[in-house]
Amino acid sequence: MDASWMVKYVSEFLGTMFLVLLGNGAVAAVTLKGSKNKGAGGLAAAWGFGIGIMMPVLVFANVSGGQINPAITLGMASAGLFPWAHVAQYILAQILGAIVGQLLVVLIYKEYFVKTNDGAVTLGAFATTSALEEPQRHGRAVLNGFVNEAIGTFVFVFGILGFTTNFFGAESIKWYAKYAASQGQSTSGSDFTSAAWASISGASASKMVGALAIGILFVGLMITFGGATNTALNPARDLGPRIVHSFLPKSVLGENKSDSKWWYAWVPVVAPIVGGVLAALLFKLIFKN
């Protein structure tokens, strides 16, 4: 789809909003006091995030790329797969989308936040923290969280690039471009793209398989890495909701609202970027020479 950059920015905003709404909405549903789904466990929350990623990818992949993650945007730009001129706008749209998505979660679960008498549980429906946290001793928590987020995001971004290259038909389009050029046909513009997809058997199904694979991959990552930090793997998904948590009053989040743990907040922002950039660079080194 040949969309304007403004439409792409809006797509990234909406995609990240859906991700946070479905992901943190699932966390709220399984952890907050009074919720009918309370106790459903981490697997239910993992599926919330998996579906929260799969849905925007299916809807927006052909518009903005469905990146919905600054680590992906920066990783792709570092590897020369996305223009640097639009990185800041994408990231701003993603963070704003995460803030609005979290506000929607609060709108739905406000009464349940008020009922919940554990500030850590409340914060967990917004942002990530480390299971190793100790009062006045944050070193182990920071180190473990950084390693967890960096490795998890590396796997996530590397997997996404692999899925989208193979299942989204990128390699098939390259083959079709060579074929069209050999026949003296134009290989630029939306007409070529449409003809390319039409020529590839099962292209639409392949895109759906790719989006499904990305969603399932994230479910697996939440299960694997979630025990240590709840796992962000996405700076916007953590930073945006944490900002919301910091400014909402106790009248909304309950008298036991804790601090927003800003001492830890840089970890799920910086570590996923490191992992995402390394994954994109390695992928390009292996597959894009």
Rank of each mutant, 00 (worst) to 15 (best):
L104V: 07
F154I: 05
G254A: 01
K288Y: 11
G162H: 04
K8V: 11
D238M: 02
E133R: 09
M1K: 13
L92D: 03
A265L: 01
S64M: 04
A195G: 11
L143F: 09
G124A: 10
A213G: 06
L107I: 14
E171V: 14
K33M: 13
F287H: 12
P268F: 02
A181L: 12
A232I: 01
S78E: 12
A40Q: 10
L43W: 06
T193F: 12
T122V: 15
A196Y: 02
E12W: 05
G254Y: 05
F192I: 09
E255V: 15
A120E: 11
Y264R: 05
G101L: 02
A61L: 03
A170K: 13
V121A: 13
L221V: 10
A180M: 11
G41M: 07
G202E: 14
T73A: 11
F287N: 13
T187I: 04
L21E: 01
F146M: 00
V147R: 07
N62M: 15
R140L: 13
V121Q: 10
L278I: 10
V10M: 07
V267R: 02
K207S: 14
K38A: 13
D191E: 13
V30D: 14
V155K: 11
A211D: 09
I72L: 12
Q67H: 12
S130G: 01
Y90R: 06
